[in-house]
Lab assay of single mutants.
Amino acid sequence: ASVAVIAAGTQGNIFATSALRSMRFLQILRMVRMDRRGGTWKLLGSVVYAHSKELITAWYIGFLVLIFASFLVYLAEKDANSDFSSYADSLWWGTITLTTIGYGDKTPHTWLGRVLAAGFALLGISFFALPAGILGSGFALKVQEQHRQKHFEKRRMPAANLIQAAWRLYSTDMSRAYLTATWYYYDSILPSFRELALLFEHVQRARNGGLRPLEVRRAPVPDGAPSRYPPVATCHRPGSTSFCPGESSRMGIKDRIRMGSSQRRTGPSKQHLAPPTMPTSPSSEQVGEATSPTKVQKSWSFNDRTRFRASLRLKPRTSAEDAPSEEVAEEKSYQCELTVDDIMPAVKTVIRSIRILKFLVAKRKFKETLRPYDVKDVIEQYSAGHLDMLGRIKSLQTRVDQIVGRGPGDRKAREKGDKGPSDAEVVDEISMMGRVVKVEKQVQSIEHKLDLLLGFYSRCLRSGTSASLGAVQVPLFDPDITSDYHSPVDHEDISVSAQTLSISRSVSTNMD
């Protein structure tokens, strides 16, 4: 405001104040949320940038038409019409005319000016109207692209899951042992070998009828009888010197917790746990005396209480009078009846079946994303299906024409109403129809010849004498029936064969 007042002088105070007050009108834009329509302006900018070359070309040609039209109309009207006294007036008329506004304040009066105005109007309006069409088509394409992008975003994750499931299904095939990355992934998420051994031990116990592997080994086996189970490696608790092959000598807290839970599941009659010990102070733990958990001091820290809870689970003690015997301790020893080589084939089979199920689920979810969402998608899918159906029908028609023997030239002739090819031409065609016709002709010829021969033979049998045999009239074959199959017997006289037959029969009768 200060700059405006200084620039306008003393009389500019009122002007500056009114100008600043008129800017209050811009507050109405906040009512229509114009300040939060950044996406709309961004869309407009992207459309203009995408079609910038077309817009520049249309505007450039339109500007050239405007300059030439205004100049030529000015030359034609400057002497006869006072409205075109300057080139600026003519340029104003050209702008209003070519933009199809047409105020009518300035019009050419001479015939030359009117002809020039009409010609440049028809030429220039087309170029001035091009930017509107370019922007409209650009907006339509952009909206369609955003629509497809939205659908693509919805299909991206199911497609990625389907590709991942397909690759993992491919890589978990037993015949592709060189693909090891997927197996490394499952090695990292699978439970430890100790848990798998416990699982298979329970399965084997159920197969043995509820007997433990130790009891199965204690059962008497006759001499020479084959053992029911192959000899396997035996594993004891981590306190002993022997372990399962492939295990580490260090046992983690999870393994100890699972070991304690498995020992508690063996039965309360074979294992008696004394009350857990509780320390009397955060600094020292008295293991010899058993106290109640309700006497825990409230001033303990979080670490002390955590250690106390761990001691409740991981440090059970047995009383002296209830101490288990050596046999019970041997039964409680952890027996590992299986090795990694025995378990891994079954584990890989389970993983393979899981990968198949996940692949089928991913495939079903991806197919669900291909379903249409709204009416536009339904129409688009219907149009695509219609085009596909037309293509299939056209391909089927082409194959039928190839089989029947109607080529493209014959199809055009039928469409024009011309006469089709004759039967002889159809026979000569190298097509399925021509071959079928040729075979039918040959079969008819053979059938006719057989009928003639059978009739001749029956007449010979009825006559009974050589004289009557020679008097029999043998009809000749019709050459038209034989089609294109020409037998060497067709052109010979059958009477010669009949005479030869009669001579042979007379000779045979004389010999008798």
Score class of each variant (00 low, 15 high):
165 A>V: 07
165 A>D: 11
167 W>G: 00
167 W>S: 00
167 W>C: 00
168 R>C: 00
168 R>P: 01
168 R>G: 01
168 R>S: 01
169 L>V: 06
169 L>R: 07
170 Y>H: 10
172 T>I: 03
172 T>P: 10
173 D>G: 00
173 D>A: 01
174 M>L: 11
175 S>G: 07
176 R>G: 08
177 A>V: 09
177 A>P: 12
178 Y>D: 12
181 A>T: 06
181 A>D: 11
181 A>P: 09
181 A>S: 09
183 W>R: 09
183 W>S: 08
184 Y>F: 12
184 Y>D: 10
186 Y>F: 03
186 Y>N: 12
186 Y>S: 06
189 I>S: 08
190 L>I: 08
191 P>T: 11
191 P>S: 08
192 S>Y: 06
194 R>K: 11
197 A>S: 11
198 L>P: 07
200 F>L: 10
200 F>S: 12
201 E>K: 06
202 H>D: 14
202 H>Q: 12
203 V>A: 11
204 Q>H: 06
204 Q>P: 08
205 R>W: 06
206 A>G: 07
208 N>Y: 13
209 G>A: 09
209 G>E: 05
210 G>V: 07
211 L>R: 10
211 L>Q: 12
213 P>T: 13
214 L>V: 07
214 L>R: 10
215 E>A: 12
215 E>D: 12
219 A>P: 13
220 P>L: 08
220 P>R: 14
220 P>T: 14
221 V>L: 11
224 G>E: 12
226 P>A: 13
226 P>S: 10
226 P>T: 15
227 S>P: 10
227 S>C: 07
229 Y>N: 06
230 P>T: 09
231 P>L: 05
233 A>G: 15
235 C>R: 13
236 H>Q: 10
240 S>C: 07
240 S>I: 07
240 S>R: 12
241 T>S: 12
241 T>N: 06
244 C>Y: 08
244 C>S: 09
245 P>A: 14
246 G>W: 05
246 G>V: 12
247 E>K: 05
247 E>G: 11
247 E>Q: 14
248 S>R: 15
248 S>G: 15
249 S>C: 14
250 R>G: 05
251 M>R: 10
251 M>K: 15
251 M>L: 11
252 G>R: 11
253 I>N: 05
253 I>V: 08
255 D>G: 06
257 I>V: 14
258 R>S: 15
260 G>V: 15
261 S>T: 04
262 S>T: 06
263 Q>P: 11
264 R>L: 05
264 R>P: 14
265 R>Q: 07
266 T>A: 09
267 G>V: 12
267 G>A: 04
268 P>L: 13
268 P>H: 09
269 S>T: 13
269 S>C: 14
271 Q>L: 11
271 Q>E: 04
272 H>Q: 08
272 H>D: 14
273 L>R: 07
273 L>M: 10
273 L>Q: 14
274 A>V: 12
274 A>E: 13
275 P>L: 09
276 P>Q: 04
276 P>T: 08
277 T>S: 05
278 M>T: 07
279 P>R: 14
279 P>S: 15
280 T>P: 10
281 S>T: 05
281 S>Y: 15
281 S>P: 13
282 P>S: 10
282 P>R: 04
283 S>N: 15
285 E>D: 03
286 Q>H: 08
288 G>S: 05
291 T>P: 08
292 S>R: 08
292 S>T: 05
293 P>L: 10
295 K>T: 14
297 Q>L: 02
299 S>T: 09
300 W>S: 03
300 W>L: 15
301 S>R: 11
301 S>I: 14
302 F>I: 15
303 N>S: 03
305 R>H: 05
306 T>S: 06
306 T>N: 09
306 T>I: 10
307 R>G: 10
308 F>S: 14
309 R>Q: 11
312 L>V: 11
312 L>M: 14
314 L>I: 13
316 P>R: 13
316 P>A: 01
318 T>I: 08
319 S>Y: 05
320 A>G: 09
320 A>P: 15
321 E>G: 15
321 E>Q: 08
321 E>V: 02
321 E>D: 00
322 D>A: 14
323 A>G: 05
325 S>T: 12
326 E>A: 05
327 E>G: 14
328 V>L: 10
329 A>T: 07
330 E>G: 12
332 K>M: 06
332 K>R: 13
333 S>I: 10
334 Y>N: 05
335 Q>L: 11
335 Q>R: 06
336 C>Y: 13
338 L>F: 12
338 L>H: 09
339 T>P: 14
339 T>S: 10
340 V>E: 11
341 D>N: 10
341 D>H: 13
342 D>N: 14
344 M>K: 12
345 P>L: 12
346 A>T: 10
347 V>M: 11
348 K>Q: 15
348 K>N: 13
348 K>T: 10
349 T>I: 09
349 T>P: 10
350 V>G: 11
350 V>F: 15
351 I>T: 06
351 I>F: 11
353 S>A: 13
353 S>F: 14
354 I>V: 03
354 I>L: 02
355 R>M: 07
356 I>T: 10
356 I>S: 08
357 L>R: 01
358 K>N: 14
359 F>V: 12
359 F>S: 02
361 V>G: 06
363 K>E: 05
363 K>N: 05
364 R>T: 03
365 K>N: 08
365 K>I: 12
366 F>I: 11
367 K>T: 04
369 T>A: 09
369 T>K: 12
372 P>T: 01
373 Y>C: 02
373 Y>H: 08
374 D>A: 02
375 V>A: 07
375 V>G: 11
375 V>E: 15
376 K>T: 03
376 K>Q: 08
377 D>Y: 01
378 V>G: 14
378 V>D: 13
379 I>L: 11
379 I>V: 08
379 I>M: 03
379 I>F: 13
380 E>V: 12
382 Y>F: 15
382 Y>D: 14
382 Y>H: 11
382 Y>C: 13
383 S>L: 14
385 G>A: 06
385 G>C: 13
386 H>N: 09
388 D>E: 02
388 D>V: 02
389 M>I: 02
389 M>K: 07
391 G>V: 09
392 R>Q: 01
393 I>F: 01
394 K>R: 03
394 K>N: 00
395 S>T: 10
396 L>R: 01
397 Q>E: 02
397 Q>R: 02
400 V>E: 02
400 V>L: 13
401 D>V: 14
402 Q>K: 14
405 G>A: 03
406 R>W: 03
407 G>R: 14
408 P>A: 05
408 P>L: 13
408 P>H: 13
411 R>K: 09
411 R>G: 07
412 K>R: 04
412 K>N: 02
413 A>D: 04
413 A>V: 14
415 E>Q: 10
415 E>V: 12
415 E>G: 09
416 K>R: 13
416 K>M: 10
417 G>C: 07
417 G>A: 08
418 D>A: 13
420 G>E: 07
420 G>R: 03
423 D>V: 05
423 D>E: 11
428 D>A: 04
429 E>K: 09
430 I>V: 09
430 I>S: 14
433 M>I: 09
436 V>G: 13
437 V>G: 08
437 V>I: 06
438 K>E: 12
438 K>N: 12
438 K>T: 12
439 V>E: 04
439 V>M: 12
439 V>G: 08
440 E>K: 13
440 E>V: 14
441 K>M: 14
441 K>T: 14
442 Q>E: 12
442 Q>L: 14
443 V>A: 15
444 Q>R: 13
445 S>C: 14
445 S>T: 12
445 S>P: 06
446 I>L: 08
446 I>F: 01
446 I>S: 11
447 E>Q: 10
447 E>K: 14
448 H>R: 12
448 H>N: 08
449 K>N: 03
449 K>T: 03
450 L>Q: 10
450 L>M: 00
451 D>A: 11
453 L>R: 06
454 L>M: 13
454 L>S: 13
455 G>C: 06
456 F>S: 14
456 F>L: 12
456 F>Y: 15
457 Y>H: 12
459 R>C: 10
459 R>G: 09
459 R>P: 14
460 C>Y: 11
461 L>R: 14
463 S>P: 02
463 S>T: 14
464 G>A: 10
466 S>A: 11
466 S>L: 11
467 A>D: 08
468 S>I: 08
473 Q>H: 03
473 Q>E: 08
473 Q>L: 00
475 P>T: 12
476 L>Q: 10
477 F>L: 07
478 D>Y: 04
478 D>A: 08
479 P>A: 04
481 I>F: 05
481 I>M: 05
482 T>P: 13
483 S>F: 04
483 S>Y: 10
484 D>A: 09
487 S>C: 06
488 P>A: 06
490 D>N: 14
491 H>L: 14
491 H>Q: 12
491 H>D: 05
492 E>D: 04
493 D>Y: 13
493 D>E: 12
495 S>A: 14
496 V>L: 06
496 V>D: 08
497 S>Y: 06
497 S>C: 11
497 S>A: 12
498 A>P: 06
498 A>E: 04
498 A>S: 09
499 Q>H: 10
500 T>P: 12
501 L>R: 08
502 S>G: 09
503 I>V: 05
503 I>N: 10
504 S>Y: 14
505 R>L: 02
506 S>T: 04
507 V>I: 07
508 S>T: 06
509 T>N: 12
510 N>K: 13
510 N>H: 15
510 N>S: 05
510 N>I: 05
511 M>K: 12
512 D>V: 03
512 D>E: 13
